[in-house]
Design a protein around this nucleic acid. Structure first.
Lengths: 189, 189
DNA sequence: TACAGTGATGTCATAACCTGACATCATCGG
DNA sequence: CCGATGATGTCAGGTTATGACATCACTGTA
């Protein structure tokens, strides 16, 4: 073993989530997070652009997963259907096994407006990426943006229901239901 | 004349927009904004919770305008229709005369991720408020959230088209069109 | 007029966030 | 064994943001 343990990034993420859960986001300093990870404050900022970002690293993976999924969807599918299908795939392949951590994370985020802001931002970034993917598949504008944003809205609402403490249903199930609600609401008179 | 000129808040907002336009958001310090407004840095923070907020004060007014409008909408209207009607009313009564300032503001925001983040956050806050208003009018959940979030998505996309440099069409017109696109996209197979 | 109360602003000190510049040290290929 | 590379540490410093307290103009009232 040398000077550095491998997995600095993961250690920082774990340390941050633990500390944020224990004593809250505001009361935790970056120096403390780094110290618990056996690292220096300066090093923290080499991995994450700011203090919030340490909670949102997974977003990059999700974005890649979803864009790949949308890119591979059958050409016959409508844009919103392609988005929803990708989200359902993520629901089973990415999220299904991670309810406990998702809840812990969400508890931290729900307690802090700055973090909610960043979460929205991440969702928006994913929506932008998915809209681009749709455009590359020939979907026009603003249909592409609209489908991507709307799909993410459905996901966000479903996700909130999923992590709610009373809930026992699966994320996929909740996405399907929310999607049905959306169709009801948008159906013209 | 006494020690203070009236309208400190407005002066701070104007100074901030001007400085952000001139030399960018990052390169402008809070002390500079305050100085141009003839005030102290500490005083800036008495009016705005943080540096970004100085650009988003109008959001409070918009939120009030929209919730009032939705609260007064005819009971027969569907939830999404009520939201869209309120947004169209804001389009004519609030935004129509302010295209120039809206564009200047948007240029500043588009140049800085932190500001985009805050803008999203403001939209989300408005959506939350509108969802609450819908619930008070008997709309269930998640239909209320869904209608509010979807309506704001339509608005956001329409607004972006409106402030785009090439555009010559009215915001109301663009909202109607985007709404038509949404109905097309969500229409089942 | 005098003067106490109130509220807006200023001053000061300081913690935490974030960054640039440079130093240190382990690893790896030769 | 050595030099290149890359991850980490050290240090200095600017900016954001906040608490505590002081100052000054305006108000009402005796």
């Amino acid at each position: 073993m040398g000077r550095w343990q491998p997995g600095s990034r993961e250690r920082l993420e774990a340390a941050a989530l633990a500390l944020f859960s224990e004593r809250g986001y505001d009361s935790t300093t970056v120096a403390e997070i780094a110290a618990r990870a056996g690292l220096n404050e300066r090093t923290f900022y080499r991995y994450f652009t700011d203090k919030r970002e340490v909670l949102f690293d997974g977003g990059h993976f999700l974005e890649g997963f979803l864009t790949r999924s949308v890119a591979e969807s059958p050409a016959s599918a409508g844009p919103l259907d392609a988005i929803i299908a990708a989200l359902e795939q993520a629901a089973t392949e990415v999220f299904a096994d991670r309810l406990a951590i998702a809840r812990q994370r969400q508890t931290v985020i729900d307690a802090n407006p700055e973090l909610q802001e960043r979460e929205r931002s991440k969702m928006a970034s994913i929506a932008t990426a998915l809209a681009r993917t749709l455009r590359e598949r020939g979907v026009g504008d603003p249909a592409a943006s609209l489908a991507a944003e709307t799909g993410l809205t459905v996901f966000r609402i479903s996700f909130a229901l999923w992590v709610a403490h009373e809930n026992t249903r699966s994320l996929t199930e909740l996405i399907k239901e929310t999607m049905t609600d959306l169709r009801t609401i948008t159906a013209g008179p």
